[in-house]
Design a protein around this nucleic acid. Sequence first.
RNA 1: GCCGACGUAGCUCAAUCGGCAGAGCAACCGCCUUGUAAGUGGUAGGUUAUGGGUUCGAUUCCCAUCGUCGGCUCCA
Length: 603
Amino acid sequence: MAETKKERYEDSELYRIRHSAAHVMAEAVIELFPEAKYTIGPPIENGFYYDFDLPRPLTPEDLEKIEKRMRQIIAGHHKFNRRVVSADEARQIFTDQPYKLELIAGLEQGGFDEYGNPLDEKPEISIYTSDTFTDLCRGPHVDNTGQINPSAVKLLSSSGAYWRGDEHNPMLQRIYGTAWKTAKELEEYLWQVEEAKKRDHRKLGKELEIFTFDEEVGPGLPLWLPRGGVIIDELEKLAKEMEDKAGYLRVRTPHLAKEDLFLHSGHLPYYAESMYPPMELEGVKYYVKPMNCPMHHKIFGSKPHSYREMPVRLAEYGSCYRYEKSGELFGLMRVRSMQMNDAHMYCSEDQFEQEFMGVIDLYHKYFEIFGIDRYIMRLSTHHKNGLGKKYVDNERLWLKTEDMVRRAMDNGEVPYEEVPDEAAFYGPKIDVQIWSVIGKEFTLATNQVDFAQPGRFNLTFINRDGQEETPLCIHRAPLSTHERMIGFLLEHYGGNFPVWLSPDQVRVIPITDSHNDYALSLVSQMKEQGIRVEADLSSERMNSKIRQAQLFKVPYMLVVGEREMSEGTVSLRRRDGSRTDAMPIDKFIRVVKDRIEKRSRDL
RNA sequence: GCCGACGUAGCUCAAUCGGCAGAGCAACCGCCUUGUAAGUGGUAGGUUAUGGGUUCGAUUCCCAUCGUCGGCUCCA
């Protein structure tokens, strides 16, 4: 389905407009910097970019100048002329453009297109000329620059980007722009971007007092505030309930271990860069754990197992530490300390499909509870070039396990897309991909096959024939890490958590201080029932108290004054502004408890 | 890690050309006794991220470090 959508964009007028705008931008940039070397400039979702090798970094003033010049070029109604050329002729044309020469060489060999994507057949080499600018380009473009609406084009930012996306290559300067058919569409897009920023989990997390960072604690090490702690407790409660039902056993493991453990697991050679450096005590190196698997393997291996008790499922909300590169940190979504909804299931090969799909089923149950529907399941497979480097060197097992996953997903009729060269080092996996409000893609949940580690740890069970057999291992984290899950949920709900997850469920608002005692009696009744409730006894006016509760997105506000006090009722105001007056407190408590127990998304 | 921008009170933001660092909200102390999103008066709050340098004088200019942001790379 994603395939046809993609096709459609490439065939669309917007695509041609954006691609053409990128050329116009390149022309303007080269006028400003005649010595510029230009590389590639494709349309992307919502816009386009172009990468240049420039003599100095671009400033915001440069962007203004370039944008202004672009409008002039557009006004010239310059025609886009396509011409097919031979590789030799192309080399003549781009003789002082080293990046283009590299692209031509790639095209000539037929290995890759101008964006570095592998190609099956040798492509035609075409060039497009409009006004003074000629580019090596596959097209398509609009007929002439006049078809770009000058009031619907805007340059957004400039930044660094590696040539061909490889960090060993020189860094180029990328200019991002956006182009639409009408000024109104542009305006709407920019407005949407601004609106999305209001839902950014970093902003909401601060406003709602969920988490904070402290320079002295360290980058990527979030501090969970009391309200965040409540959400964590609720998520763990949910996980325990679901996992108990699904037959998991709960374990606990230390935060660090000796170097030997991670050498044994294979993490050290494959994963060392992302681990905090070791601490050495009495000649022994210890590492804080970047994942829980080796510890769980040790638990499985701590006693012999019979086929009768398989599969064995070990679960833990495990704290892990990963040394993510400084520039990669991003709010709660990419951190250095995390608590993972981890579990490892050890099973025989013929139990695999059922176990694997059991996890997929668990995903679906969770997504139903949270109302998550915008995601893609992605099967990440190995690539043979990475065997022995990125991936455990056993192609037979790679192919076999990848096929097992495909078959399981197909039999379960679960849609997924397949992406090569994205697997874990020990096996293929199904990732659940989601997007943050500002458009970054993340893996939320993961379900991984591991055919490597059980063998490395000599894990076995005794099968029906009395023989030792090595189990497969499934690593899974349907609720992700607390960090990424709560970061995602903050944006997913825009801060309006369902009642069961809300840090504050009820706020009682006495109208004057003569109603404080009544408010407090309501609070103690509700607390008795396990409801998270506080009374606002400040000397502020009711309006101000309501505003406070609204800002914290408290689901229920109970306004109480003379009337309510004499009747034993409450006046209910919900977070969405709706009201129910003269509600008996017993009834209110029943409704709220029902919502909480059912983990309802209703308000 | 790389390219670039930014860092002022708890929060959101001011401060002309290098010339005494300010406001609103929040906090604290009062007054007001209130009916569905901000009642009101006052008080306090700062080594302008940190460390150097230039200058009679630095929030402002320069250098380094730390952190954040936008990208790139990476992402179990």
